[in-house]
Amino acid sequence: MHAGAAAGPGAGAVRLARVETVPLDLAAHLAAVEDDTAGAISTFIGRVRDHDPHASAPVVALEYSAHPDASAALRGIAERAAAGTRAVVAVSHRVGTLQVGDLAVVIAVAAPHRDEAFTVCRAVIETIKLELPVWKRQHAADGSAQWQGLGG
């Protein structure tokens, strides 16, 4: 399944695309994109940070929830990013309550050359931000909580 010999131009593929309730594992994503055609692997990690311009105090946790179709939507996002390329993609988004430093998103993209690996990886995270039906509520150290993405 990981043999690259038959993979011609435009044979981009998604090997992992999932919304997870358990901690994300970068090594599992690197293993998923292992491919003899790959001369480059680009990774992206989205983490919970301790501050936010909209928070009234230091951020202590993010509470993520997802639409029931979110895993399918994530696969579609990855497939569109890989279409027309030779990149192979593994991507996961975590849901549940995450503490500062926990991983919210992990992406690994392998491709014959670095430009394609970077470009596809960037496309996946940017499209996740716009289109993945996931929500987060930010909890601050003063006990306040705010839904992200809602203006006002």
Binding site: I128, K129, K136, L150
Partner: peptide, 10 residues
Amino acid sequence: VDVLPPFAGG
């Protein structure tokens, strides 16, 4: 019908 607030993934 689904009522979906603005997405905030990532």
